[in-house]
């Protein structure tokens, strides 16, 4: 499902020199596999996920999602691949504040296979928000917003779900519930899950936990 080889990404520092942020020789995920990656803030985890999602272009190396090499795709094709194959759950949810709960999910679908309001409603009911379809994100609790983000990420039946500190803004109780929801829905959809977190309680729930420092050579262990 996901295969990474010799992935490198540098940024220009304020001083003008290059700073290697991501240097991952190898990483892979099989279909339906759920892996958590432990990493501290600022270690380059988000950049790593952005590279996998095609939001950022790698300087070198290979990222293959569902057999398609990101480096060989143009930007528009990467956008399409992201819309159709990848679901991304952001730490801050990144919901569109001017759109209703239902529109947030439907809009996410419209860039992929196509908007399906009925399917979006089913998904939102599945995450317990069937009664909040016309609410705006600001009218929801943090936990509810997280559930909208989960529904949106899964709306296009992605093959790969990326979750960036998905419980970082939730209290213990909601964090546990959100994580269970993400894992369960991924399992049901047969999607691979790559979750990055520095929360040990979250990481403890995964069988396969990888240390980002061991994956990324640019980070001092």
């Amino acid at each position: 499902m996901l295969a990474i080889a010799d992935l490198k990404k540098s940024f220009v520092t304020p001083e003008g020199g290059p700073a290697l942020i991501v240097d991952v020789p190898a990483f892979s995920l099989t279909a339906g596999e759920q892996v958590a990656v432990r990493g501290e803030s600022g270690s380059g985890k988000t950049t790593f996920l952005h590279l996998i999602a095609g939001i950022l272009a790698a300087d070198a190396g290979r990222i293959a999602v569902d057999g398609r090499d990101m480096a060989e795709l143009g930007e528009a094709e990467r956008d399409r691949l992201r819309a159709e194959k990848i679901g991304y759950i952001f730490q801050t949810f990144n919901l569109l504040q001017g759109y209703t709960v239902l529109e947030n999910v439907v809009l996410g679908m419209s860039f992929g296979p196509g908007a399906d309001r009925a399917q979006a409603k089913i998904l939102l009911e599945r995450v317990g928000l069937g009664h909040r379809l016309s609410h705006y994100p600001r009218q929801l609790s943090t936990g509810q917003q997280q559930r909208v983000a989960v529904a949106r990420a899964l709306a296009n039946r992605p093959r790969l779900v990326l979750a960036d500190e998905p419980t970082g803004n939730l209290d213990r109780k909601h964090a546990r519930a959100a994580l269970a929801l993400i894992r369960e829905t991924c399992r049901e959809a047969g999607a691979a899950l790559l979750l990055v977190s520095h929360d040990e309680e979250v990481l403890a729930q995964f069988e396969g936990v990888r240390d980002f420092a061991s994956l990324n050579r640019s980070v001092s262990p």
Binding site: A53, I55, A76, D79, R80, A83, L95, L96, F111, R152
Partner: peptide, 16 residues
């Protein structure tokens, strides 16, 4: 900016 970035992260093309 943020809304546009979110749309793009969801798969919206630049031309969209």
């Amino acid at each position: 900016r943020r809304d546009i970035a979110i749309l793009r992260s969801l798969g919206a093309r630049r031309r969209t």
